[in-house]
Write a protein that binds this DNA or RNA. Structure first.
Lengths: 188, 188
DNA sequence: TAGATTGTTAATCGATTAACAATC
DNA sequence: TAGATTGTTAATCGATTAACAATC
């Protein structure tokens, strides 16, 4: 496929054509009147906007079931990130390779950050540990957090902005439970 | 803690007091003027609205890294769901116990559904398999989907509404990559 | 040129916020 | 009763949709 119209994009994504055109225009005029959008170029432009080639240095902390699954299941490179370190407090897990990265003891975290300057951290640790560890990581220069602990992180820094994505999978599941309970309620 | 005001709830959740009061009021007058909300009662009411005690019968399909992590990491009971079956097409995995449930071969899915009538399915399978399997499950009576495949499900049914939560973890990671790229841009 | 489809402005809609009377 | 805080309405804001002139 060479080109695509805002109408077809809208259909595929479940949005309106207006929304597609207006949103894309916030970032620049990627289309051409009477023609539509060149798929290859649009894809490249959106990739550039999102920063999918930035290779942001990323570390992952906590290699329980979830941490291991995230490390192996997510294509970090494709999303603009590069997994350069994995840490766990359980020394029995250290030394193992996960997604091509060796698990290191949490005690080496500080030295690792000083040497490698990761900008992003994936937190797959219990909620009790999340707050303190996150604040420590901010001090070590981490500027973005992908937080899978159940603790809702809100981080501050004097100079720079800290970005947090709190992932609450349980909420997503509860949304379904709510939907099932209210299936057949009016106005649906 | 016995009681809480809309103002304090708002602070804790990063919302406004107005929003808390208006939203809660959509479901009923749980508060009392001059007093606030009784925490115990509010918690119970919200639980009832969400349906966290419904015990919706749930099956999980696909026991790769992610499927295994979801099964073990998520407290289904707490979110109104009960994991009653796990299936995989890889027979080497069948017979194993995960989260207290035995993994069964995918070939037994149809008979299982006929016998046990699950209403929810967790899809931890490749995107190529998601569409067809989901449609099959709809025919077998499943009404809610928690979809971790990268395929965006949109399901229809003549009589009943089908509910879908498409979880795209990659999007969440890209949001962070975008944020890092545009840190320091104006108006922040 | 005629047809198609964008970029962009104006109109609509819904959600958030502010305000305040009701009332515990 | 006085103070506090809800329930609820009105005002504001932003996002979505519709419309259309620009233009490829």
């Amino acid at each position: 496929m060479i080109r695509i119209s805002s109408r077809e994009l809208a259909e595929r994504m479940g949005l309106t054509a207006s929304q597609i055109r207006q949103d894309l225009n916030c970032f620049g005029g990627f289309g051409q009147q009477g023609y539509g959008y060149n798929v290859t170029e649009l894809h490249a432009q959106i990739g550039k906007i999102l920063g999918v080639h930035a290779g942001n240095k990323t570390i992952l902390i906590g290699v329980g079931n979830l941490g291991k699954a995230i490390a192996q299941h997510i294509d970090f490179e494709k999303r603009g990130c590069k997994l350069i370190g994995i840490f766990d407090s359980n020394h029995a897990l250290c030394g193992k390779q996960i997604a091509g990265v060796t698990v290191d003891p949490i005690e080496t975290l500080e030295a690792f950050c000083a040497a490698n300057h990761p900008v992003m951290a994936v937190l797959c640790i219990p909620k009790t540990a999340a707050h303190d560890l996150a604040h420590q990581l901010v001090k070590l220069g981490v500027r973005a957090f992908w937080n899978f602990s159940h603790y809702d992180l809100r981080l501050e820094h004097e100079q720079e902005q800290i970005i947090v994505e709190n992932v609450h999978l349980g909420d997503s599941l509860m949304t379904l439970a709510y939907g099932l309970q209210h299936q057949g309620d009016a106005h649906e």
